[in-house]
Simulated assay, not measured.
Amino acid sequence: MTGSSYACRPARLVVDMGSSEPAGTRRLAETVQARGVGYVDAPLCGGVVKVAVTPASYPFMLVGA
């Protein structure tokens, strides 16, 4: 995740759809926001194992500030 944060340019938006630990998600958000990049945490609802849907119907939960 650190490598991709260096590629971010100001006035862009990162949409994190990973199933990450909360502490890592917060660190990534802080890193990209310090570079002037917006951040939205958007994990798939239901977790990694439970999600069994077609690609056109992934349920998302978006959280941002």
Rank of each mutant, 00 (worst) to 15 (best):
M1C: 09
M1S: 13
T2R: 06
T2G: 07
T2Y: 02
G3I: 08
G3N: 08
G3W: 01
S4F: 14
S4I: 13
S5I: 03
S5C: 12
Y6W: 09
Y6K: 10
A7I: 03
A7E: 12
A7K: 08
C8M: 12
R9W: 04
R9D: 05
R9Y: 04
P10Q: 07
P10N: 08
A11R: 10
A11W: 02
A11T: 10
A11V: 07
A11S: 14
L13H: 11
L13N: 09
L13S: 09
V14C: 03
V15F: 01
V15R: 00
D16T: 03
D16Y: 02
D16V: 09
M17R: 06
G18R: 10
G18L: 10
G18D: 11
S19D: 13
S20C: 11
S20A: 15
S20N: 14
S20G: 15
E21Q: 11
E21S: 10
A23R: 05
G24V: 05
T25E: 08
T25L: 03
R26W: 04
R27K: 11
R27Y: 04
R27Q: 15
R27L: 13
L28A: 13
L28D: 02
L28W: 06
L28V: 11
A29L: 06
A29S: 13
E30Y: 07
E30M: 12
T31C: 04
T31E: 04
V32Q: 02
R35N: 09
G36K: 08
G36D: 12
V37H: 05
V37K: 05
G38M: 04
V40P: 02
V40C: 12
V40N: 01
D41H: 06
A42W: 02
A42S: 13
P43D: 14
P43W: 06
P43I: 05
C45E: 14
C45H: 08
C45K: 10
C45Y: 05
G46C: 06
G46Y: 03
G47M: 02
V48T: 07
V49Q: 01
V49N: 03
K50P: 04
K50D: 12
V51T: 14
A52K: 04
A52T: 10
V53C: 10
V53F: 04
T54Q: 11
P55A: 12
A56R: 06
S57H: 10
S57A: 15
S57K: 04
S57R: 06
Y58K: 00
P59F: 00
F60M: 15
M61P: 00
M61I: 09
L62G: 05
L62W: 06
V63H: 01
G64F: 05
G64R: 04
A65L: 06
